[in-house]
Nucleic acid binder design. Structure first.
Lengths: 208, 208, 208, 208
DNA sequence: AATGAATGAGATTTCATTCAT
DNA sequence: TATGAATGAAATCTCATTCAT
């Protein structure tokens, strides 16, 4: 019940959709798609259930908006990295550093990634979008740089794509660890240190 | 029918019909916990909905049984590896090979792992079990071997735990890839080749 | 989708209720009382949803206004017929011709009649008004003329009220036909021809 | 979560669908499609809301079942009349008598007819079924007999279809009267007497 | 007088769970 | 042990009505 004297509702049209998306992200990340009750999203966003439907047609629509909204900054990052012409080792350091900061820092991204993994069967279009706009371009970028480095004789023979997976794998592991095992008491992973040590190891291991 | 002498109300995990567990695993993996309808599990198992409740108290109980049931072979594998006294490189090759075969071969395991990730917030006890019985022992085992190898001067300095994550990361990535991106058209990862190439790379990179 | 500002189109205040009533009649006739959304009424009337509440207290109030508004011309017609002192045959021809023109010509009237029929249980006051102001006076008028004609020996014995129903029945049938069966492909009834042929038949059949 | 108490439910599988249809007919006839709450249907049928969905997929599906279920006896009647080879006057007497008994006797039929009229815009398929299986065959049958009688010189010239409408119209009027005006205090129509007097009048008026 | 974002009660529909058979 | 019809709480979604602007 609202305190006496306070108006029953207020208008904040500009901020509403963003507030709803932020609240929805939290609840979806915690409960999954089906486990999320729009009641709770509305409460966290500080609006009524009905208000959600002023901005999003259905629950699935809201879910899609949450995921695609979280994608855009990552697309930008991949693009930025692709346009910067740098040698392989520097690019690898930049890329892994970026992934490490994302995994370690931004709760929202790891939450959304977990959602995409969890709901890939029920909402395959989200896995598609994530794959096409972030994952595949990223992998292609890295493996392209590796192939070029191989052509210059700076990297030993081997499948460039597998090298890329070998580089990125521990970052994925960290994300899963953070979302799954840390909440039940597992000691946290120092992702920055992992990225550093792993880079040193793999770059050395990739030399001819 | 049970033998006459058996206590009526004692439900042992091994007495639970394998068909129900198998059917439940399929549906849970495809739809998640909340998205799974017991109707569908019963239909796939070839029993009535009511029959499920002869063996499992609730839906959550069935879910827990599915996940813990899938854990046991992995526990065995980790134990077997722990008891075999082998040098680090051989152990690493054995361990990663085992993970690779698991990831690439057994749909059930990757499905369960995805479930544990997806439902870790709603069913943290499963993440706990998985972590305590499989993940942490495995990581401890590998990093112990690495520390021993470092003490013998066979591996360069560095955090043994991070080395372990560096080794296993790409296997986790492969599992996520298979469950999430392959179903939406991503090219499959040759996990065995990835394990081989990654091992060569990392082992070389870990030398003093 | 976010709302975009639109240029305000202002109309004369006193003109609005008629537009609202016209729009409401269309939607109520098409969808029934419960099936009508005030959103759609407002859109068709070219006003905002809130504006409806400046003129009508509730949806039911608007509905009543629509139906009672449609009654008044019919009341006038019945009164006009009652005041004109004409012989029975001529009155019957006039009355049935009027009904025929109403049924065949004015979509609004047949729509409202259908509404009154459909909603008589939920809004009995409308059936009451319609009955008291149009139907009963009309029936009484006709049967009074018939009784007078019988007294003069121009019409054979029989219940005058039933004679009246016998005359008007086909007009009611035509209204139902038009509203119910024509929209699903039934061939239309030539109501004027029906009225003519039916009058000839019945007047002949009523002769002593 | 499991409050023990009196026997919570009983099984009466054979009678269930018919009970639900009967209850639904009452409520739909009283409130219309949109105005009907499944809560009330379930309560009148003596079952839970969920039980309705064991027999009918949706509310609209239940509605269609109610209407089509009510049609079948009328189809039979029309068929029976069509197969009986009788002269026109006798057929007209039989047909109108049947309509009169239906209108005066069976509450369910007049309720369903009112429903079809009221919901013809929202559920046109019901108007279609009713028209194709009952109304049009009936009209065709009667007008065919009239045309034959005209060919034999027993009936004066005129559109046979319009003669048919002239005969049946008062029965439609009676049905509307009963459903709409009787509930608000209008004196009832003696439908049998109306049918008799109208037949005498029209048959006399149709003679050459 | 007019707007339209916001509300919240109420509707349909789903589905885990129960229990008479 | 097994069934599956039945339950009822809970979820999504709708829309008449309100009120700050």
């Amino acid at each position: 019940m609202l305190p006496a004297g306070q108006p029953k509702f207020r208008r904040r049209p500009e901020a509403r959709p963003a507030e709803i998306l932020a609240a929805a992200l939290q609840v979806f990340a915690a409960r999954g798609f089906q486990g999320t009750r729009l009641d709770e999203v509305a409460r966290r966003a500080g609006v009524s259930k009905g208000a959600l439907y002023l901005y999003f047609e259905t629950k699935a629509d809201l879910f899609r908006a949450v995921v695609t909204d979280a994608i855009s900054p990552n697309i930008e990052r991949v693009k930025a990295m692709a346009s910067a012409e740098v040698p392989f080792e520097q690019a690898a350091r930049m890329g892994l550093g970026m992934m490490a900061r994302t995994v370690a820092g931004d709760r929202r991204v790891s939450g959304v990634v977990k959602l995409v993994i969890a709901e890939s069967r029920n909402h395959p279009e989200l896995a598609t979008i994530w794959h096409e706009t972030v994952v595949e371009p990223g992998v292609t970028l890295i493996s392209g740089l590796i192939a070029a480095a191989q052509a210059r004789g700076e990297v030993r023979p081997g499948d460039p794509r597998l090298f890329a997976f070998g580089l990125m794998g521990p970052m994925v592991l960290s994300m899963v660890w953070r979302e799954t095992f840390e909440p039940v008491g597992a000691g946290p992973i120092d992702v920055a240190a992992l990225a550093d040590q792993h880079l040193d190891t793999v770059l050395k291991g990739m030399r001819p």
